[in-house]
Every structure is written in structure tokens, then in C-alpha cells.
């Protein structure tokens, strides 16, 4: 894992040397500030504004866009510039390369997410009472969701040498991932009557499918624990497992690239 550390260092430092990163930072911080301001004037109460800024619809939009934008370059860019050949012939394993890069993007997003903490700090400073456990829990949850989505984005990035295409693929994947439970329910509404004869049979099928979708439901897992300030280890494991799977798939996809040439 020393290799992963070395790759992480370079990647993280490299992020801050790319003008692109600064543009992303500027846009995100600016929009986030404006949104927070908007939530504040709309709800008129401090905790409502915080809640909106941290976990509202805009939050999930960021969560789809930002990891995709950061992850799109991780492999695709290196593949295009040829440095991937350098990295993949260096004495580090593919998994170390993948982990290092993933960590770098994740660290960046964690720092970016921490900017929201400053809102809570500010509210505290002007005499408000932010719900600190919920704020911190939300930040941890943000990092975990970002971890998963960066991993998905990175997998998409190994499929192509065009970063933008990778970003698009990644966004589509993340949106579908978030909508899995919803889409499944919708689809079931149409086909369920044909699947079971009796009400009990239908109910058991519904329960089985819900059991599956619940295990992919990032949104639900996030809302149930982190948002209310509960650090449930099973929720952490939920995100980490999926992330690990996608990191593994990314490493395998890199290896598949070698075979394709």
C-alpha cells in the first residue's frame, strides 16, 4: 500500500495544479453559498437552512456531478496522455494505482464537503444552535457517498479515453443508482399483478425485491442514519462494501485494458 500512498500524493497534489480543479472549487463554493443563502431566506430558520444546504436536493445534485467530474480524468486523461503506460509499468499493483487515485479524489471532495461545516460554524458564531451531531454525521455520510460515486466514476473512466464521456457515463450510473428503489417500485407496480396469483404471493415477491433494492439504496441509507447524526456501523459498511466492489471492478477493468492493448 506504499504504492497507493505515493500515487495518492501525486494525484492529490496534481489536482491542485490543474486549473480545472480551481474552477470547480470556485463554482461549487459560490453556488453552495448562494444556495445556503437562498435556503436561509426561504425557510427563515437556521436549522432548516442548514438541512437544506447539507442534504437537500442540491446536495444530491452535487453528489452526482462532483465525483463524476473529478473521477473522469483519473484514468481517461492518463490513458490519453500516455502516462498510464508509465504508471502501469511502475512497480505498483493496479489496485494500488486505483486506490491511490480514488483516495485523492475522495480527499478533495472531503475537503470540499467540509466547507459546508463552515456554515454551521458561522451559525454558531452568530448565536444560532446548529445540530452538530447531525452536521458532522452528514459530513461523514457525504464522504461515504462520494467514496462510492468516485469509485463508480473511476470505473467509467477506465472504459474510455475521453474524460467527458467518462463523466457522462458516471453521472448516468450514479443517477440510476440513486433511483434504483424508485424505479423498481414503479416497474413493480406494472408487473406485480402478473407475477403472483394471491395477495400473499404478491406481497412476498414485493418483499423479496424490496430486500434487494434496499441493499442498493444509497439515498435511504444516507437519510436513515448520517443525516440525523447517527453513525451506524452497518450503514458505513453498506457504503464501504459497494465502494470496495467498484474499486475492485476498476482494477479489473484496468487489467482488461492491458489485454485489449
Amino acid at each position: 500500500m506504499i504504492g497507493a500512498g505515493v500515487v495518492f500524493q501525486r494525484e492529490f497534489a496534481g489536482l491542485f495544479r490543474a486549473p480545472f480543479t480551481w474552477v470547480v472549487l470556485l463554482v461549487v463554493l459560490l453556488l453552495n453559498g448562494l444556495l445556503f443563502n437562498g435556503y436561509l431566506t426561504a425557510s427563515g430558520n437556521v436549522s432548516g437552512a442548514l438541512d437544506g444546504a447539507l442534504t437537500g436536493f442540491s446536495f444530491w445534485v452535487w453528489m452526482v456531478f462532483l465525483p463524476a467530474l473529478l473521477a473522469m480524468r483519473l484514468v481517461a486523461e492518463e490513458s490519453r496522455s500516455g502516462t498510464l503506460e508509465y504508471l502501469l509499468t511502475a512497480p505498483v499493483s493496479d489496485l494500488a494505482v486505483v486506490t491511490g487515485k480514488w483516495l485523492a479524489a475522495l480527499a478533495f471532495l472531503a475537503v470540499l464537503g467540509a466547507s459546508s461545516l463552515s456554515y454551521a460554524g458561522m451559525i454558531q458564531a452568530v448565536g444560532g444552535q446548529p445540530d452538530w451531531p447531525a452536521v458532522m454525521g452528514t459530513w461523514v455520510g457525504t464522504v461515504l457517498v462520494a467514496a462510492l460515486f468516485v469509485a463508480i466514476g473511476m470505473l467509467a473512466s477506465t472504459f474510455t479515453s475521453t474524460p467527458l464521456l467518462a463523466a457522462f457515463l458516471s453521472m448516468v450510473a450514479c443517477v440510476s443508482w440513486l433511483l434504483v428503489p424508485l424505479l423498481a417500485e414503479q416497474a413493480l407496480g406494472y408487473v406485480l399483478p402478473f407475477l403472483g396469483e394471491t395477495a400473499e404471493a404478491r406481497a412476498s415477491i414485493l418483499a423479496a425485491i424490496r430486500g434487494v433494492t434496499a441493499n442498493m439504496d444509497a439515498f435511504g441509507h444516507f437519510q436513515r442514519s448520517f443525516r440525523i447524526g447517527v453513525l451506524d456501523s452497518s450503514e458505513v459498511v453498506f457504503f464501504l462494501t459497494w465502494t470496495a466492489l467498484f474499486l475492485f471492478l476498476t482494477a479489473r477493468s484496468l487489467e482488461a485494458r492491458r489485454w485489449r492493448g
Binding site: G14, R17, S81, G82, T83, E85, Y86, T89, A90, P91
Partner: peptide, 16 residues
């Protein structure tokens, strides 16, 4: 990989 020095034709170096 530890015992070779490989220089590909494209000379891949990080420009930044």
C-alpha cells in the same frame, strides 16, 4: 518492473 527502466515512445511524463 523493479529491475527494468522502460521509456515508452511517447515519453510519458506528468506535465504539471
Amino acid at each position: 518492473r523493479r529491475s527494468i527502466g522502460y521509456l515508452p515512445e511517447s515519453v510519458p511524463l506528468y506535465p504539471e
